[in-house]
Structure formats: structure tokens, C-alpha cells
Write a protein that binds this DNA or RNA. Structure first.
Lengths: 102, 102
DNA sequence: TTTATATATCGAGATATTTCGATTTATGGA
DNA sequence: TCCATAAATCGAAATATCTCGATATATAAA
């Protein structure tokens, strides 16, 4: 749990939005036939949804990954990103115990 | 609850430290005789503890205040800052419901 | 009213982040 | 092998943050 990286990753509305969208696969276009059964969302779909450039999204997903909020898995030419719920919970726990009195 | 301002305010290790220190008055030098009974810690003590310039700390406390994490109260020439526990809890609630799935 | 002290505000240089388009790398298909 | 597509990396301009010292403001004390 790198609090520094985690908070920096959250310090951007688009990145927070992406984390929210990733809660539900149906926020993105339906998976391609060759992707049925695979978990996560590929960069292109996130880019389309966010309306930002490919390089920006790739960068953002890298930051979210380094912060531990998402996991990446490569399948062929695509990289699928999905939330890392365990780490997200761990982060919330950590902020809480840092911020909360007692 | 301005999530934007709140996260930005937390996106700095010194400001997070200050919030932690403010949990316990004894992290700072004892209050002056003329301040006994008054709540909070004055800027000078925070500055001394943090080892940053006076203007930096004044700026930081302003950011923490705008984010709702602290309350300021002026007594004479001193400004006393203290945590706003209600708002801190509200923030934690908000991050949690934004980040957590379900 | 002058002086001293505490804090806030201003202006600026250094550093970091944002975001892009261009390029590179990885992979799969013709 | 050559081409197409997806994603990552690079380089850069615009903007924001960090942090300071200097100055301004507010208050109290002499």
C-alpha cells in the first residue's frame, strides 16, 4: 500500500471516473466475440468512454496499476484492465486509519 | 464535500502529517498560559513541528480548511486550527462509496 | 501612537502533472 | 514475410503545485 502513489492516482477526475466505470462491465461496449469469457476492459474502450487520447489512457491505466487499483492482463494484442478489489479495500482501510481519530 | 479539493489537499505528505498530528494536542508544544482552555494549535507550532516556512504552513492550513478537514478560529493574534471530525468522516464516507463496488 | 508578534497574502523560481501527437513495440492475420 | 491493429513509450508544450522570502495585515502591548 503506497499511500503516496494511491492518492496521487486518485487526484484526477478522469482516473476516478475510470475506476467507477470499471465497477460494471456494461459501462463499456460489449466484448468482441473473440473476447467472450475474458475479464476486464481493453484500453480502446476506456479511451472511447473517457474521450481522451490513447496515450493518455495508457498512461492513466499505468498509474492506476502502479497504485494497485487495477490489474492488467494481456490477451493477444489487447490489454484488459479490471479493478483489484482487494487492494482497493486495503487502500480504504489505510486512509481510514490514517485520517480517523482513534 | 468537494472531493476534488479534498483529495488534492491530501495529495501531500506534509499536509497528511499535519492532520495526523492534530489528532493529539500533545504532538505540539504546550499551550501558552494565555491560551489555556482554547482549542486547537496555532500556526507557529505547526510550522515548527513540520519544519517548513511560515508562509507554506499558512498556505497548507488554508488548503486543509478549504477542503473541510480543519476549522480555524482566531483568538487575538493567533489562529488556532483543529480537525473537523465531522467533515473528515463525511469525506471518508464519500471516498468509500465512490471507490467501493456495490 | 509606535512597536512587536502572529498570520495571511504576494510574486516567483523550481518541479511535477496533464495531455497530446508521433513513434515504437507486440501480436495476429493475410 | 508484410501489413494491420492495440497498446506502450517518448518528447514536448501548457498548466498546476510546491515552497520560499518579502510584504501586508491584524492584534496586542508599551
Amino acid at each position: 500500500m503506497d499511500m503516496e502513489k494511491s492518492i496521487a492516482a486518485l487526484n484526477n477526475p478522469a482516473r476516478r471516473k475510470i475506476l467507477e466505470w470499471l465497477k460494471d462491465r456494461s459501462n463499456f461496449p460489449p466484448a468482441l466475440p473473440e473476447h467472450t469469457g475474458l475479464d476486464g476492459v481493453c484500453v480502446g474502450y476506456i479511451q472511447e468512454k473517457a474521450g481522451l487520447s490513447q496515450s493518455t489512457i495508457s498512461n492513466y491505466m499505468g498509474l492506476l496499476k502502479q497504485a494497485g487499483f487495477v490489474k492488467a492482463e494481456r490477451h493477444g494484442q489487447w490489454t484488459f484492465y479490471r479493478r483489484d478489489e482487494k487492494n482497493i479495500q486495503a487502500f480504504l482501510q489505510a486512509v481510514q486509519s490514517e485520517l480517523l481519530k482513534d
